[in-house]
């Protein structure tokens, strides 16, 4: 029991140990497993209707689907960038180099999130 409490307390230290980042990595990871499997079934069970413009348009006019897509790319980006930071840090690069790589990745992630959000919000199903 004492060991368990001690174990939980290491998570409470959070920022110092990076444990909270690791915990979020697992939480977002499990969320992504559920979302990805759902996405795969939805898009590929009936590949034609999954990928045509009409069905995409009807999904994107549904606020629940809109929210799901936005959540999906946001969680995915967080998980991906956090994971890459883990990999970068393991290579024992010079600090300026690892921070530059990570910074570039974060900026790119925000730009592409912007593109994704723009697609979802400015999508017009009536456009020819």
């Amino acid at each position: 029991m004492d060991k368990e409490i001690k174990h939980l307390r290491t998570y409470a230290k959070g920022k110092k140990s990076g444990a909270s980042a690791w915990m979020w990595q697992r939480i977002t990871g499990l969320a992504l497993v559920v979302l990805t499997i759902g996405h795969y079934i939805m898009m590929h069970y009936e590949p034609k209707s999954g990928h045509d413009y009409g069905s995409t348009a009807s999904r994107l006019s549904d606020p629940v689907f809109k929210g799901m897509y936005l959540g999906f790319i946001t969680i995915g980006m967080y998980h991906g960038v956090q994971g890459c930071w883990n990999v970068i840090r393991d290579f024992k690069l010079k600090p300026w180099l690892s921070y530059t790589l990570f910074g570039t990745l974060v900026i790119l992630a925000f730009i592409f999130l912007g593109i994704g959000y723009n697609t979802v919000f400015t999508f017009d199903p009536l456009k020819p």
């Binding site: 995409t56 991906g80 890459c84 790119l108 592409f112 994704g116 697609t119 456009k127």
Partner: peptide
């Protein structure tokens, strides 16, 4: 790790590719 990096790259490509939805049918 290798698949993770691959999937992160793919997420960027996926968002980029689907931005054509705004260009119409």
């Amino acid at each position: 790790r290798i698949t993770g990096i691959g999937l992160t790259v793919y997420l960027f490509v996926h968002i980029w590719a689907l931005s054509s939805l705004t260009k119409g049918n």
